[in-house]
Design a binder for these strands. Structure first.
Lengths: 125, 125
DNA sequence: CGGGATCCTAGTGGATACTG
DNA sequence: CAGTATCCACTAGGATCCCG
C-alpha cells in the first residue's frame, strides 16, 4: 500500500508519497472546493480518468482524503480532505508563493481558478 | 529550455519545474551543504550520474543553482544555490514538517543526515 | 573527478470503449 | 455519473562504459 521509501529523509519520503506529476494537483483542486470525480476530471490540467482514479485511490490509502458515497441516481461520490490531507496546505502555499515570486509572468494572467479558490489559498505576491 | 506548463496555476507550474522524482531531493542535498558532483551522487538516495547531471543542468537553466568551475587537477565543480533557489527552502521545510507529523515512525530513526544539515533545516516535530 | 554517450527497461500516462 | 478495462506510446529513469 505504501510506496518503497528511498531513505529516512522526511523530504524524500514526502516526495515518495506525493511527489509525482498529479497527486498535488489533484489535492489542490480538492482544496479549491472541487469534490466530485467529474469536477476533478474537468480541471484546467487535462488528466485521464484512470490516472485520476489511481491518484484518488492512493490519496485515500495514505489517509489524505476520504471518500463519501451517496446513494442516489445517478450515483454521487465525493472526496474530502482529512486532517492529514489538510495539513498539506502549507506545502501547496509554499509552492504557490515561490511561483508567484519567480514565474510572475505566468501568474500575472487571470489564473484559471479565480473563483472557487478559498480567499487566502494563493498567498499575496 | 522551460518545460511545457500545463496551466496558469502557480502550483501546477511549480510542479512542472521541479515536481519530478529527483529535483527537490538534489536541491535538499545542496541546502544540506553538499556542493560537489560526487557528494551529490553519494547521497542516501542512489541516483544515476546521468540523472544527476540532467537535474543539475535543469536547475541551473531555471536559475535555482549556480555552477562554479575551479581550474584544478583533478577538476572541481561546485553547485551553489542562487537567491531564487534559496527561496525554495519553505517548500522543503513544509514537506519535512508534514512528514514529521504524519510519518513519524520513519522520522524517529536517526535520520540519514544528522550531521551536515543546517540547524533549523528540519523543523521540530 | 565530472560528467557524456548508449542502450535498455519499467512504469507513467493517454485514448478509447465499456459497465453498474 | 463514476469509474474499470484494455491497449498503446512515450519518456523518465537506470546500468554501464568511456573520455577530457
Amino acid at each position: 500500500m505504501y510506496p518503497a521509501f528511498r531513505s529516512n529523509c522526511p523530504i524524500a519520503s514526502a516526495l515518495d508519497l506525493f511527489g509525482d506529476k498529479w497527486t498535488l494537483v489533484v489535492l489542490r483542486t480538492i482544496f479549491a472546493g472541487r469534490h466530485r470525480f467529474g469536477e476533478l476530471g474537468g480541471m484546467a490540467e487535462p488528466i485521464a480518468t484512470n490516472m485520476l482514479a489511481d491518484r484518488l485511490q492512493r490519496l485515500e490509502d495514505f489517509g489524505l482524503i476520504e471518500r463519501r458515497v451517496y446513494s442516489e441516481r445517478p450515483p454521487r461520490h465525493e472526496y474530502w480532505l482529512t486532517p492529514r490531507g489538510a495539513d498539506a496546505l502549507p506545502i501547496l502555499q509554499a509552492m504557490a508563493a515561490w511561483s508567484q515570486q519567480h514565474i510572475p509572468d505566468r501568474w500575472a494572467s487571470p489564473g484559471w481558478f479565480a473563483e472557487g479558490v478559498p480567499q487566502d489559498f494563493y498567498p499575496k505576491p
